[in-house]
Amino acid sequence: SISKDALLSVKNKYDLRRADRYTAIVMASAVQACADAGFADCAMADTGIIIASSFGPHRTTFAFLNDILDYPEDQVLPTTFSHSVHNAAASYVASSLQIRGPTISLTGFEDLWFDALELSDVFLNSGCCQRIVLVGVEELALLTQSLPSILPDSFHCRLLEGSVALLLSSTPEGKNYTSITCSRRSSCGEKPDRHSSCATANDFLGGAFQTALKALASSNQPGTTISIG
């Protein structure tokens, strides 16, 4: 699993005393993507944030629900409740990196990474903002760790945990790894059996890592384009 020290260093740097683990995972990748592009520790105007996750902060959500079962309603922790909100991590990124722009959290179980990239493309092309911090994240908790045994047909392999952040821009800037395009393929007939390769949840985070890997691989070849379908 992700080392506690790595998350602790991010929490200490940005004084995230009460942030939950999910937020720290999101922050670790988002901070690094901005630093990689040369925007570290400075306000980024006209920048949007899109955070995509199939399960979101479910560790915190269940912690809050467990508290509701164990304690009277007026004695549960408001801090746990506020972090159980799906958009909390995006707000932390906006606040810590002083990013001003639209802030969106996406969730879903099919083609989530593609949806997130496509939404980023729409935001940039429509002039809604000049940059997008796009984060794909998945945190493992009791539910997600148990899924292969609870639903072996849908989740036949162990889920991945991690986070990938891309700083996307409408014009070349920063490291300028590559350009990226999204095109939705029209589906005819039945979808292929996705379970034969991997669980859809893993497809999401795996897809995010693959996009980052392709971008890194293309950094030595300027002018290349990654096409996501």
Partner: peptide
């Protein structure tokens, strides 16, 4: 659109060198 920066964290740590 263009990819201007990359960040990642997984079991292998923070940073693109871990990808």
């Amino acid at each position: 659109m263009f990819i201007s920066g990359i960040g990642a964290i997984s079991a292998s740590g923070i940073g693109t060198e871990n990808l």
